[in-house]
Simulated assay, not measured.
Amino acid sequence: MWRIRSAEELCRSGGESSNGAPPGTPQPVVDLLNREINAALDEPAIRQRIAALGAIALQGDAGQFGAMLAAETESWRRIVESSGVHKEG
C-alpha cells in the first residue's frame, strides 16, 4: 500500500512537495484548487509554518508548474547523462 509522506517529512528529508491533480481533471476544478492553495499560502501562519520546516512556498498556476517540471526534468536528464550512469534492466 502506498503511503504519502507529509510536507513536513519531505522538508525534513530535503525533498520537495507539490500539489497536482490527475490527468483529465476538469479545468474549473484545477483553477479552483490553484486559487484556494494560493490563498492558503498567502496566510501568514501557513507561510511561517512552511518556513519553520525549512521550505519555501512558491505560488503559481498549472502552466507555470508544468513549465518548471519540464525544465527540472531536462536539467536532471543532462546531469544524469553527463555522469555516465546507465539505467539497469
Rank of each mutant, 00 (worst) to 15 (best):
L10N: 14
G60H: 06
L10F: 02
I46V: 15
L10V: 03
E9A: 03
I50D: 05
R12Y: 07
A52L: 04
S13Y: 06
N19V: 12
A40Q: 10
G60Q: 13
R77V: 07
L41A: 08
E43G: 04
L58G: 01
R35H: 13
A62P: 04
E9K: 03
S18G: 12
I56F: 02
T25K: 00
R78V: 08
D42F: 01
A52E: 14
R3K: 11
M1S: 10
A55C: 14
W2M: 12
G14S: 03
V29C: 05
I56Q: 11
G14Q: 04
P28A: 03
L41K: 13
I37P: 03
V80G: 05
E72R: 14
E74P: 06
G89P: 11
A21Y: 02
L32S: 06
A62H: 09
E16K: 11
V85G: 03
E16R: 09
E16A: 15
R49Q: 14
P28V: 00
I4R: 14
G54T: 03
K87N: 04
T73N: 06
G63F: 05
F65P: 00
P28Y: 07
A39I: 02
W76Y: 08
N19H: 12
E88P: 08
A71K: 13
L10T: 07
E74M: 10
S82A: 15
R47L: 01
E81Y: 07
A52Q: 14
A51Y: 01
R5T: 06
M1P: 05
I50H: 06
A52G: 15
E43Q: 07
L53Q: 12
I50M: 00
L58I: 04
M1A: 09
A70C: 04
S17K: 12
W2H: 12
R49V: 02
G63V: 07
P26T: 04
V80W: 08
R77L: 12
S6I: 09
F65K: 10
S13F: 01
L41D: 02
R35N: 09
N19E: 07
A39D: 03
F65W: 06
K87A: 12
R3F: 09
Q64A: 15
V80P: 00
P22T: 08
L53E: 14
E9S: 00
A71W: 00
G20V: 08
R47H: 01
P23M: 07
G89E: 11
Q27P: 10
P44S: 04
D61C: 01
T25A: 01
L53N: 11
M1W: 01
C11I: 00
G54E: 01
E16H: 14
E43F: 00
A62K: 03
T73M: 08
G66R: 09
P28D: 10
